[in-house]
Design a protein around this nucleic acid. Structure first.
Length: 571
RNA sequence: UGGGGUGUCGUCAAGCGGUAAGACACAAGCCUUUGGAGCUUGCAUUCGGAGGUUCGAAUCCUCCCACCCCAGCCA
């Protein structure tokens, strides 16, 4: 009873399966769990700063942090690292939560903010001060830099380094009370100005910032620095493994130092390499420039590597997750080929997208021997990879549109499409042969006259003759107009940052909007977010922003692999 | 010239002293009513380099080379 497809196409991943690839962090956790460290608990967190939208590089971090917790039956938190009121906004908080949920992760009731801990952090700071391990410094920012020394020369102690504990306590209290202007003083950890690791040269813990915070309002005018806030926040939440970017590797001694001085729960920080992908940039700082300077329409522009951009473009969370699983986790810096992301996408879309016919660049074809006024309905399979997707009816008539590039007056070898005297199959319909080409005064082809073989109805003939080419088409009288947007890489250089101004490498041709496309009637009711495969073209989704009642806009998510383009390219 | 990292196929990436996984890409072929999908096959005598230890090294030791990160009151 087994259907052909059932045994010939087993267990091919549907994109949501996670390849259980191991990596160094997993090994560390396995070992610790086996030793019953932290009572065998695994608790991770993803700590975004709400100063921009999440991009696919963050998706990797989320998948690593959250994926590991899931794998070990642990928990994971979402914690906004909102220690710098100057850059952070509530709008970003919301966008970030939406994107993480879309990816398929649920932090349940474990949503936190570093700002939740401002009081606790302040108390911790007083403790360190009382222990003589922190002091208020009156040096200016410039002076602090000078006193810090250089990569090769040790720093020197600030003249304020040895204030009495009482004075430090008093000054710190008054810093908090708002007695001093921005930048006039800081609280610093007293560690070692000669430490070879610059992070240990009395790092700043608090700075004065009279700024309104998106959550605490005007309660505070001193704000903790990342190094002071992060580890303690991890500790307070009972995090066991604090997984972060490799660039924090030399902050780890400081991370450990603060926690050890305080004697509180000690999470383990482990660093792994961030994701890089060619022809784009994965940095909030740079992406925000593209947004603010109008290179793109917004954070969710379909060309953006942001999760909201990818979503609008038609990427599925499953594809992104599979991608994150496949790129692995290691410490070496790398540049992942976008082809892998696209492969994961096509793999997922192939089994899920309903097939439709859409002609992007229409060329009219008149079938001379087809009865005028006659309309036939052909039943078309919606998805050969998924029988449950069912079928739909497609109208056929005497005048149709085919893709302009599917006809060549003087075809090269191996061109299996339409050409004078050459026969092709119209998908789901008939075989047609090109009889005549009509051009305008400029020599541009205006329309084609063809004849059809009534015997070929449905796509085959009694004589079983071979027809190599199959074209997509749309009945002229029944077609609907649509706009289609094609996207190309965001930048023209694989590593746009190799130039002084990365924006100079912006790909001006990254967006092509095509109006006057002809799509089959079934597409008329497509709703924003719906996705399809346009036969022989690629995967497309209905744009969720610019689509209006009578004017559907389709985004090309990714093209289909194009073997002919490869062959043609070689000729 | 200080400290911290990293160097295995074009791109990712396993390998944890016993004689180079896998994936993408690429190539060839099969199949095909999407030149899609699928299937088959091929693709590192070699692991940044040079020495050394060992019966045996990508894995251990030594030295060297290259690249990345750190001198924010950003995260």
């Amino acid at each position: 009873m087994a259907h052909e497809n059932d045994d010939s196409k087993p267990a091919k991943a549907n994109g949501t399966e996670t390849e259980a690839s191991s990596h160094f962090i997993k090994e560390i956790i396995e070992k610790e769990v086996a030793e019953n460290k932290n009572d065998g608990r695994v608790h991770t967190r993803f700590p975004p700063e709400p100063n921009g939208f999440l991009h696919i590089g963050h998706a990797k971090a989320i998948c690593v942090n959250y994926g590991l917790a899931e794998e070990f039956g642990g928990k994971y938190n979402l914690r906004f690292d909102d220690t710098n009121p100057a850059k952070e906004e509530t709008a970003y908080v919301e966008a970030i939560m939406r994107d993480i949920r879309w990816l398929g992760f649920d932090w349940e009731d474990r949503l936190f903010y570093a700002s939740d801990y401002f009081d606790q952090l302040y108390e911790f700071a007083i403790r360190l001060t009382k222990d003589g391990k922190a002091y208020v410094d009156d040096l200016t920012a410039d002076e602090i830099r000078e006193y810090r020394g250089t990569l090769t020369a040790p720093g020197k102690d600030s003249p304020y380094r040895n204030r009495s504990i009482a004075e430090n306590l008093d000054l710190f209290e008054r810093m908090k009370a708002g007695e001093f202007p921005d930048g006039s003083r800081v609280l610093r950890a007293k560690i070692d100005m000669a430490a070879p690791n610059l992070n240990m040269r009395d790092p700043v813990m608090y700075r004065i910032l009279h700024a309104e915070h998106h959550r605490t309002g005007n309660k505070w005018c001193i704000y903790p620095m990342y190094d002071w806030a992060h580890g303690q926040s991890d500790s307070i939440e009972g995090i066991t493994h604090s997984l972060c970017d490799i660039s924090f590797e030399d902050h780890r001694p400081l991370y450990d130092w603060f926690i050890d001085q305080l004697g509180i729960h000690h999470p383990r920080q482990i660093e792994f390499a961030r994701l890089n992908i060619g022809y784009t940039v994965l940095s909030k700082r740079r992406l925000i420039q593209l947004v603010k300077e109008g290179f793109v329409s917004g954070w969710d522009d379909p060309r953006m590597p942001t999760l909201s951009g990818l979503r609008r473009r038609g990427y599925t969370p499953e594809a992104i997750r599979t991608f994150c699983d496949r790129i692995g986790v290691a410490k070496r810096e790398s540049m992942v080929d976008i082809a892998l992301l696209e492969y994961c996408l096509r793999e997922d879309l192939n089994i899920r997208a309903r097939r439709m016919m859409a002609v992007l660049d229409p060329l009219k074809v008149i079938i001379d021997n087809y009865p005028e006024g006659q309309v036939e309905q052909f039943e078309a399979i919606n998805n050969p990879e998924d029988e449950s997707a069912g079928t739909r009816m497609i109208p056929f008539s005497r005048e149709i549109y085919i893709e302009r590039e599917d006809f060549l007056e003087n075809p090269p070898k191996k061109f299996f499409r339409l050409a004078p005297g050459q026969e092709v199959r119209l998908k789901h319909a008939y075989y047609i042969t090109c009889a005549r080409v009509v051009k305008d005064e400029n020599g541009r082809i205006v329309e084609l006259h063809c004849t059809y073989d009534p015997e070929s109805r449905g796509g085959g003939t009694p004589d079983g003759r071979r027809v190599k080419g199959t074209l997509h088409w749309v009945s002229a009288a029944h077609a609907r107009d649509a706009e289609v947007r094609l996207y190309d890489r965001l930048f023209t250089r694989e590593n746009p940052l190799e130039d002084e101004d990365f924006k100079a490498n912006f790909n001006a041709g990254s967006l092509t909007a095509i109006r006057g496309c002809k799509v089959e009637p079934a597409l008329a009711d497509a709703q924003p977010g719906e996705f399809f495969q346009f036969l022989r073209q690629g995967y497309f989704c209905v744009d969720s922003v610019d689509t209006t009642e009578n004017k559907p806009v389709f985004n090309r998510t990714v093209s289909l692999k194009d073997t002919w383009a490869k062959i043609a390219g070689k000729q």
